[in-house]
Each structure stands twice: as C-alpha cells, then as structure tokens.
Amino acid sequence: MRDTAEPGIVCEGLCVVRGGHTALTDVSFSVGPGTLTGVLGPNGAGKSTLFGAIAGTLPVAQGSVKLLGAATERGALAYVPQRDSINWAFPATVMDVVTMGRTWRLGLFRQPGRRDRDTVRTCLERVGLWEQRSALVTELSGGQRQRVFIARALAQEACCVLLDEAFSGVDVGAQEGIVEVLQTLRDEGKIVLLATHDLTNLSQRFDRVLCINHHVCAYGPPNEAFTTEVLEELYGSHGIEFAPNHFTTDVGAS
C-alpha cells in the first residue's frame, strides 16, 4: 500500500566523506511538502553530495537523512542530473527520455503500455514539449533539455524532485521558464530542491534557500538568508559586491 502521508526530508547532523575528504559536515535542515528550495553554494560546495546522500546513492558517515511519508516509497525521488553526468552519445529522443520515468514501475520484461504512453504525453504537454517529442535530446536547447528531465520526473510520479545544477547551460529567459514549471510542482505539494551555483535574481523566487559551503551557512527565506556574511562565506568578496546591489535592495521588487 502506498504511504499517503505527506512527504518530508529531514537531515540531522549529516556528514558525508568522499574520496577521503569531508564533503559535508553537520548539515541539518528539513523540508516539507509544497516547497521550492534553492540549494546554493559555489562549485564543489557539496550540493551534489547532499543530493547523493538524500537519494541514498552516497553513504552517510555521520548523522542521518530521513525520508518521511510518501517520500519513503519506491520511485518517490526523481533526479534531474547535471549536464556532465548524462551520456550524450546515447541517441535518445524526448519521448525515450520521458518514458524512462516509467521504468521503475515496469520492472523486467514489461514494456510500456497505453497508460504509460498517456502519462508520458500528459507530462510532455505540461512542460510544452509534446510537439518536439521525436527530436533527439541533443538537438534541444539547454532549457528544453531541463524541461525534458522535469517531464521525466513527472512521468515517474515522484513526490520529491532533486535538480542538480539546473541552470548551467541555460539562458536567463529559459531559467525563468524552468522556475515557473517548478512552481507548479510546488503548488501540487511536491518537494522541489534545486541546486545551483548561480547567484541570480531567480534566487528570490524560491520559498527557501539552503546556502551551503561544506556546511550550512544559512537556511530560510531568501530575504533573510542572504546576509552580507553569508554571501561572503559562500562566494568570498565577490559575494559581498553582489549583496547590496543585487539582493538587499531587490527584495520585494522581483
């Protein structure tokens, strides 16, 4: 029986060691249903490591990651990978990639049926890519590719979506489009975590931001989390230059 309790992710004192180095230390935060959370930090800050620990693909050295309610179900977590971790030599169409979202439901020896095809169509229509269904994913723009992967997460019927470096290789206009789609997922009660190293005005569109640089620098609503100290801790002096012009005065305007 599916767990219908509301999903949640709770990290308590999480430490993860990768290649002999401590990638994350003492990370504690929790997210509940219907939240769009930005995970911000410079390259190598441990954002992907955090996602790996949440998804259970990386071992936890200390502390814990707890998935609650519907998030404990099989197939509850969907992952939108970084561009570099995809094998682009594999010739997959938009339809092929979104159909992958049905794989865990099908198991061995079963091929997608009518219901699966209907679901794939609905998901592609939602992200506005049904017309491009026969295109190879390599023929799409960065923003369209991200929407294909979001459609795959939808086809998986996941309640938690983790997007790793979702804005890299995506122009600003398309980033806006991605955030809009993610906001609709949030409004349906899903947990959406989006990791990015880009500090843009879009950060103001998240419900909460988790600023990490191997540890949690700040966690909360963007206008509270982005203090001068936090930005300096994340991005050094460049962060401070950013802060007054870009955020503090921008709050409420965007």
Partner: peptide, 23 residues
C-alpha cells in the same frame, strides 16, 4: 536483452538518475 532493455537503456543514458530511482 528484452528483459533488461529498459534498465539497460536508462543506465546507459543516465547512470546516476537510474540509481536514484532504485535500478
């Protein structure tokens, strides 16, 4: 090949994503 087709395709294209969904 038939039985594992979908798993093989998923892992060839996106190994990390495949492992997150439990493949």
């Amino acid at each position: 090949l038939y039985g594992f087709h979908r798993q093989l395709v998923y892992t060839t294209f996106d190994e990390v994503g495949a492992s997150v969904v439990g493949i």
